[in-house]
Computed example of a mutant assay.
Amino acid sequence: MSPTPQQRRAARHQLGADPSASATRRGPSGGRKKPITVEAIISTAFGIVESEGYEALTMRRLATALETGPSSLYAHVVNKEDLDELLIGRLCAGIDLPEPDPAHWRQQIISVCTQLRDQYLRYPGISRAAFAAAPSNLDTLRVGEGMLAILLAGGIDPQAAAWAIDSLTLYVNAYSLEVSLADRRLGRSDDDWVVSRDELLRRFAALPGTFPRTKRYAAELTAGTVHDRFDFTLGLMIDGLPGSRRDL
């Protein structure tokens, strides 16, 4: 008897997925097309997200792209959440984790967060798949293990380090989602919602006197790129950790 999707999922978590494992196609086209594999599912899903955005990724849309029915997909994935876990795990597999260095731990943890951000930004909105999901994929857990090792090497209290990982990844997820949403607005034909910095400065200058600080510090409020703000926020979070110290 073939393993159930749940058994396949459990095997992936324990031993890693076998991308070559395939399921027989069902329906009149069965046998005339390439078999469905975990690798094919992941690759096709990423293609949909890259071209259409994460919101377009449904099991039905994925099945259509693979020229099969949803039932063929369920031979490999339990549900959409399982697919999400595979996608986030694949992105996490591309993160380079350094050997923890007490002298450079701050730079190292920022590098990991930046790599994760850049992975998410390759696929518009995909960081949404990481929200409210307990990490169980081995590749995802590998990143958490690496971040914990770096923070502990920096002298961070274990409990603070554990919660810091949650806070940092939550910020990276939210930041990446916001940037994806902003980029989508920029790509829309009705760009009335897109406001340039110059236009924002003009609007702030035209505010009534009941907004004295906003008017006075308009340049500061609108300064910097989104990545500048990303680096600033990471610095605030990391430097505020109990026992944290800057690179030596």
Rank of each mutant, 00 (worst) to 15 (best):
R25N: 05
R245D: 09
D239I: 01
R61A: 14
R8L: 15
R122F: 03
L138E: 06
A40D: 04
T214A: 11
A223G: 08
M59S: 11
A133D: 08
L236W: 12
D192V: 13
L141E: 08
N173M: 15
C92F: 12
A160N: 00
G146S: 05
P100T: 07
S111H: 12
T222E: 02
P28F: 03
T68S: 10
H13R: 15
G144T: 00
P3V: 11
L66W: 04
W105N: 03
A129V: 07
P19V: 09
Q7V: 07
L207V: 01
L241Y: 01
G125A: 00
F232P: 00
G146N: 02
P98E: 00
A40H: 04
D82A: 03
L138S: 12
N173S: 14
Q115E: 05
L248D: 15
A174Y: 12
A65F: 02
H13G: 08
D183S: 15
A93I: 00
L66I: 02
G89P: 04
E220Q: 15
I126H: 05
A10M: 11
Q107N: 09
L221T: 07
P28R: 03
Q119E: 14
L177K: 10
E99L: 13
T4R: 10
L87F: 04
L91K: 05
R245T: 13
K33C: 12
S244E: 04
Y54T: 05
I165N: 06
D231C: 09
R32I: 01
H104W: 08
L186M: 15
R202E: 14
T68C: 10
S72D: 15
L57V: 01
S43E: 15
L181C: 09
P100A: 04
A134M: 11
